[in-house]
Amino acid sequence: MRSELDMIVGGVRPLERPEAHTIEAPGKSGEGTFTGELTKALGEVDKLQVDADQQAKMVAEGGGNLHEMSLALEKADISMRLAMKVRNKLVDAYNEIMRMSV
């Protein structure tokens, strides 16, 4: 009886674990993590905004020069649009996942 049970149990192979993907722990602001890169990119966008602000202020105060200001505004505009694109894609992806019926 015992041996029969052993046979049956021995015939049942343990479930093989699928190879676990190594996913970087989120929340770390270290190099290479998605959050870290995103924060860095947003920092750069912010820097360009501040730069454009300063240029506009300088022109308003009579200093600076016009085309440098326009270029700074343009840079700020383009980078902001890019940031918005990334944000919209992220939100879309999030909504898509939340709609998923489990």
């Binding site: 020069n65 085309h67 440098e68 270029l71 343009e74 840079k75 383009i78 980078s79």
Partner: peptide
């Protein structure tokens, strides 16, 4: 961003022409 290189080049051209 490499996209801004051309902006800087054109900006220097604008400055030079203004001079």
């Amino acid at each position: 961003m490499d996209f801004f290189t051309a902006l800087r080049v054109s900006g220097s051209g604008l400055s030079a022409e203004r001079t």
